[in-house]
Design a protein around this nucleic acid. Structure first.
Lengths: 106, 106
DNA sequence: TAAATATATGAACAACAATTCATATATACA
DNA sequence: TGTATATATGAATTGTTGTTCATATATTTA
């Protein structure tokens, strides 16, 4: 028998995946990259320059995001342009941002 | 001159806070606690029992969430009941969950 | 094909975070 | 007041993660 509740029960497995998913947003470098890509695709070198980061730092973090299918690379010549690959990313980013901004106002 | 964009620019400082905020959701233990508290307040021992975790593990993680004002303790006798302290938490949890569930379906 | 440019990646290192264990604090009750 | 119960916390340990540095791969162009 289940207790009545308005909150859906979530499997242990899904909760684990959920925490893994939030981890992608839980790093300054990655969140800056995500924020940048919200405005559109950008090459690795452009990202590095814009964020004032070493190229290898950006590449390493892009690999993490790419492996998780959060960003998608497209090669053009010797440049590789990265774009957000999931329509939910902006929504999650903005939900968190709304919280932070709301908190700042007191 | 600014380039036209539909995406709000966010300060470095705010992006850092945002990533720090998402970190709270980026741990299995904490996300399980948060999920549990979505149904209502619960004592430390009840949380530990329900999640099959050591009491000190739960207390340590609750301290992290408490310090960030994500949960709020209320003492009743020798028990301390924890409840979610921020109305946005459920929203963020559900936004992430929707993404995970959507992904699972393919 | 050689040089230059753009990106990726492996290994080492450093920083950080979660758990464990022991113990401290606080409350209730006999 | 002494004991039991509930929770918190510090220290040590372990596991994880991000960065750095060196180098590899891929593409373009001279």
């Amino acid at each position: 028998m289940c207790k009545a509740s308005n909150v859906k029960s979530v499997s242990l497995d899904t909760l684990f995946e959920l925490s893994e998913f939030f981890k992608f947003f839980g790093d300054t470098t990655r969140i800056r990259v995500i924020h940048l890509l919200l405005s559109g695709e950008m090459s690795v070198s452009a990202i590095a320059e814009k964020l004032n980061l070493e190229q290898s730092v950006v590449s390493h973090q892009l690999r993490i995001l790419r492996t998780a299918n959060l960003v998608k690379p497209t090669r053009d010549g010797r440049k590789i342009y990265y774009a957000l690959d999931d329509e939910h990313i902006g929504e999650i980013f903005n939900t968190g941002l709304a919280h932070i901004l709301h908190k700042k106002k007191g």
